[in-house]
């Protein structure tokens, strides 16, 4: 089995077990993260804050595949974008409260992921990435051509934001942020649950050594396919909220560059960490927002350079590096590598 360099776990053993053996630290982190999420729109323009959290969930969903299963999907724009469209269409045509529309979008993303996942997981490494990219391009062209439904190049305009007649949420993006946040936090919790479940354990074993997992009786392809569909569903939640937040769905949400951007965020933050997705999304969005507001025209040049630097200097990504440093300090203090159990 070929494994790409990017999806390989660090050779000196992952830090997962060590981090898990410190529940107190985990609670502190969780509380800090929650406070940060609640405070964000006070410091950042609320629509931008919403972008950060939605993209964070997108990156986390991708990390289930990239960091925990060892699969680099280069086609996740298909699930992000199609959920955005379906959410937008449900909201436009049925006037349902936006959380219902978002769930509709996420369900659609999962249904779409079934055949795509079923076919793609038969390949691994770069071939998997290429197959997912090819499928995503198909979805892109459907979105482009079916302009009666999607608005084609003009995108889907005027997506309403209906929320049980509560006007503050429907009109003010500051209040909308707090109405939509629980959906995204639920998505993040779900990702954490998946990764730390019996299923997640099997995924890690597949990432580390797929033939060995098969010899233990695990149907590796089926596990990968289920992981793929779950990841697509969480991606769909994020894409749906993004669509409602903007009140508009652009064709670029389906474009392959969107798939690329989220891979970049995930790697930037650190794969196989979940938290890395949040860090990656935050840094990317803030950097782009700062550069855009300063009137600078080469945003991609700067974000690209930052990406190259991070990958070269911090192989584990920002969060991955922080965690690794923390864990190795801890390991030095305790006498040996024998953890404290659970």
């Amino acid at each position: 089995m070929t494994q790409s360099v990017i999806t390989q776990a660090p050779a000196d053993g992952a830090d997962v077990a060590v981090a898990a053996s410190n529940p107190r630290l985990r609670w502190i982190l969780l509380a800090a993260g929650l406070v940060a999420a609640l405070a964000l729109p006070w410091f950042v323009y609320p629509p931008v804050a919403m972008d950060i959290v939605a993209l964070a969930l997108f990156a986390i969903a991708l990390d289930i595949l990239l960091g925990y299963t060892g699969l680099l999907s280069f086609g996740h724009a298909a699930f992000w974008g199609s959920s955005a469209y379906v959410t937008g269409l449900i909201a436009t045509h049925y006037g349902l409260p936006f959380p219902v529309a978002v769930i509709g979008g996420a369900v659609f993303a999962m249904i779409l992921a079934l055949p795509i996942g079923y076919v793609s997981v038969r390949r691994s490494g770069i071939y998997f990435a290429m197959v997912t990219l090819a499928f995503a391009q198909m979805v892109y062209f459907i979105g482009y051509q079916w302009s009666d439904l999607t608005g084609g190049e003009n995108g889907l305009q005027g997506v309403p934001r209906s929320f049980f007649g509560i006007e503050a949420v429907e009109t003010d993006s500051f209040y909308f942020y707090y109405a939509a946040l629980p959906i995204l936090l639920f998505g993040m919790w779900a990702a954490w649950r998946i990764v730390h479940s019996p299923f997640g354990r099997v995924l890690v074993s597949i990432r580390d050594n797929a033939p060995r997992a098969r010899a233990l009786g695990y149907e590796v392809d089926k596990y990968k396919a289920v992981a793929f569909v779950l990841s697509a569903g969480l991606t769909g939640l994020a894409g749906g909220v993004f669509a409602i937040s903007h009140g508009f769905v652009a064709l670029t949400e389906l474009h392959w560059t969107t798939s690329g951007d989220v891979v970049l965020m995930t790697v930037l933050g650190g794969i196989g960490t979940l938290w890395g997705g949040i860090v990656g999304a935050f840094l990317t969005v803030m950097l782009a927002d700062y550069l855009a507001s300063s009137g600078f025209h080469g945003i991609d040049l700067i974000t690209g350079s930052v990406f190259v630097l991070v990958v070269l200097l911090f192989r584990r990504g920002v969060w991955g590096t922080v965690r690794h440093q923390w864990n190795s300090r801890r390991r030095r203090r305790t006498t040996s590598g024998e953890g404290t159990g659970r």
């Binding site: 998946i194 299923f199 997640g200 099997v202 596990y223």
Partner: peptide, 19 residues
Amino acid sequence: LALQGHTRHGFRFWRSERL
């Protein structure tokens, strides 16, 4: 993992790994 291999429990993504 090996003990779980011949059961179907491996698909339980909604349960805790403490299971």
